[in-house]
Nucleic acid binder design. Sequence first.
DNA 1: CGTAGTCATCGGATCATCCGATGGAAATTT
DNA 2: AAATTTCCATCGGATGATCCGATGACTACG
Lengths: 301, 301
Amino acid sequence: MTTLPSPRQLRYLVALAEHGHFGRAASACAVTQSTLSAGIIALEQQLDAALLERTGAKRPVFTPLGLEIVARARTALSALEAVAETAAAAREPLSGPLRLGIIPTIGPFLLPRLMPRLRDRFPRLKLWLREDLTERLVEALEGGRLDLLLLALPCACGDAETEPLGMDPFLAALPQDHRLAARERVPIAVLGSERLLLLEDGHCLREHALDACSLPGAAAGEPFAATSLYTLIQMVASGLGVTLVPRLAVRGGVLAGAPVAVRPLDREVGRTLGLAWRARSPRAAEFRGLAPTIAEAIAAE
Amino acid sequence: MTTLPSPRQLRYLVALAEHGHFGRAASACAVTQSTLSAGIIALEQQLDAALLERTGAKRPVFTPLGLEIVARARTALSALEAVAETAAAAREPLSGPLRLGIIPTIGPFLLPRLMPRLRDRFPRLKLWLREDLTERLVEALEGGRLDLLLLALPCACGDAETEPLGMDPFLAALPQDHRLAARERVPIAVLGSERLLLLEDGHCLREHALDACSLPGAAAGEPFAATSLYTLIQMVASGLGVTLVPRLAVRGGVLAGAPVAVRPLDREVGRTLGLAWRARSPRAAEFRGLAPTIAEAIAAE
DNA sequence: CGTAGTCATCGGATCATCCGATGGAAATTT
DNA sequence: AAATTTCCATCGGATGATCCGATGACTACG
């Protein structure tokens, strides 16, 4: 059985790598510079490895091995944190800080109904919200800067674990005087011959809507891409074309009195909303426990 | 910044889970029972979590949370070990114990040429060999019981990292008096109408050979599956049918004087031999350094 | 009722870690 | 060129964590 490096010393090393300065790294660890310096030296002795180039340079310079060790130290430290977090999560589930990422085509429309429910059922939960495109949210999730994502499935979310929450059907949004507005339901087939407006690239809603209509991506005229669902609706109201909006957004008030008619499609298509989290997160069980409440908010009128 | 659990106490906990007995776990950790007991209690207090059911039972019983914590403690400990191992590997690369798994259609034929080369170039390397089917080797690799695999690609080796070492072409093996033995090269197309003998299920060589001939798996008569390349050759010698053998095995002496003719095929097909290791292994760089030597042994006459 | 087995607790010794002060080298200023 | 500043390494002494051996408490079993 080999002797394991001390987590404290690993923390010193990681802090030193982050700050590039003994003194600042020391105060970040709430110890004196001498302690941190001695800790690094002791670590180098225990590992029998040169981590820093001791050339008397102004700033500490890491050897290649040193950088490698720093990377492994980071993962070891977060694995240790996971032990403590698992215990903390079991102590009082669904409490404490939770960093939630939401895509822009869900957030503004769902949160007004979701937040009161969450405050009601999990009063000790402290939600930190961040709204961004799927791709960036997934990056932040994998980087550990977010704990949980609320987005539209399927998505390229790597090795994250996902849980579907419910269907969000698409509705056709038309200018009020459009000839199709007279019909009870809009056939998907005719959309291909209309001027179909979409969100700009990067919004998953764009791809999901095209998929739903079985249209190729190129069919969408690029100059008419909107930057948000609100502006998209305004464009429809101006008679520039038609679009698909998620029912969630309509219920969330995206129309806001604009002269736009929404009609169901002749075949129910839509997107599936879902949660995503790091598969190895100590709080995975908690997140699953959150799902019913969110699903309820999605299904609510 | 949260307070991290002590690795020592985590080790106590894991040992207790493994031995199910305070005294034996303690001696496994080279401490007294009292130390281990106190360590577990201190860990429970620091985590503020009940890990054991303290019912005065004969054997320690873990709570569900306790088992979860044990699992996370294991990964945290191995992450810490990885730090130390990275330093050790950098100190003297390609030395120390290396647990190598090899599939049966490579091992007996390559090792006689490989081992002297390894002893020559890496005299401090201590090889532990295990021969088994691909599937079990991959299991052992992921379970940490093996460090490195030598097998035929492509294989379902999960998230392991692989490095190709070289091509091992297939040759047709025929009874010496077989009519095809008179030809310089054997056309792949005619093999479908011959009685094709293969290794039994589980050997990757079986699938790779069928793939090479673009034959469906069902085409192989099950009653004629052999358990090793040696017995397969004996079956060919007895006139039961024909087969494909890797050139590596022929050069390794699999024929052993049997009345069997080997002929190249009309199109060069074969399998790719390669190495596989856990992507996060601290010794990944070492393993890559091993590849040229093995490739040389494969390519050698 | 006594014995064996097992885990928890206690007192005292030991060792790792920490801090403040100081040393010494390089960069910067005067 | 000398003085000053900045920065990292080292030292001595205080503190706290960890360890051990002995002992206590509980259960199981004959």
